[in-house]
Computed example of a mutant assay.
Amino acid sequence: MASKTKVLITGATGYIGGSVLNRLLQRSDLMSSLDIRVLVRSPEKAKKFEQFGFTPVIGSHADESVVVPAVSEVDILIATTDCDNLEAAQIALKGMKKRFDSTGKQPVYIECSGTGVYVEQSGGMHSTDTVYDDANPDQIETLAPTQPHRNVDLEILAADKEGYIKAYFILPPTVWGIATGPLVDAGLVNPHSRQIPVLIKACLQHRRGGMVGAGKNVWNNVEIHELADFFIILLDAVLNNKAGLGHGREGFYNTVNGEHTHYQLAESISKALVELGLGDNPTPSTFTKEEEEKYLSFWAPFYGTNSRCLATRAKALGWNPKKTTDDVLATMKTEIDTLVTTKRIDSIGPV
Rank of each mutant, 00 (worst) to 15 (best):
A2H: 09
T5I: 15
K6E: 02
T10R: 09
T13W: 10
G14Y: 11
Y15K: 00
L25V: 04
L30M: 14
M31D: 00
M31E: 04
P43W: 00
E44T: 15
K45E: 06
A46F: 05
F49G: 03
G53D: 07
I58E: 03
G59T: 07
S60I: 00
D63E: 12
S65T: 13
P69M: 11
S72H: 09
D75S: 11
L77A: 02
L77E: 01
T80H: 12
D82L: 07
N85S: 14
L86R: 11
A88T: 01
A89I: 02
I91D: 11
K94H: 08
G95N: 08
R99A: 15
D101Q: 10
D101T: 04
Y109G: 10
I110Q: 10
T115D: 07
Y118L: 14
E120N: 15
Q121V: 02
M125E: 14
A144E: 07
A158S: 15
D160L: 00
F169Q: 02
P173I: 06
T174A: 15
V175S: 05
W176Q: 13
I178K: 06
V184Y: 04
A186F: 02
A186M: 03
P191C: 00
R194L: 14
V198W: 14
I200N: 13
I200C: 11
L204W: 05
Q205F: 11
R207Q: 13
M211H: 01
V212Q: 07
A214M: 14
A214S: 12
V222N: 11
D229P: 07
L234M: 11
L234Q: 09
D236A: 06
D236L: 07
A237N: 12
G244D: 06
G248I: 07
R249H: 12
T255P: 02
V256C: 07
E259P: 05
Q264M: 10
L265R: 04
E267K: 13
S270Y: 03
S270G: 13
K271D: 12
L273R: 02
L273I: 02
G277D: 11
L278C: 12
P282C: 00
T288K: 01
E291R: 09
S297P: 00
W299S: 09
A300L: 03
P301C: 03
G304Q: 03
S307C: 03
L310S: 14
A316S: 12
A316Y: 05
N320D: 14
K322I: 03
T325L: 13
D327V: 04
T331W: 11
D337V: 08
T341E: 06
D346P: 08
I348L: 05
I348K: 00
G349K: 09
G349A: 10
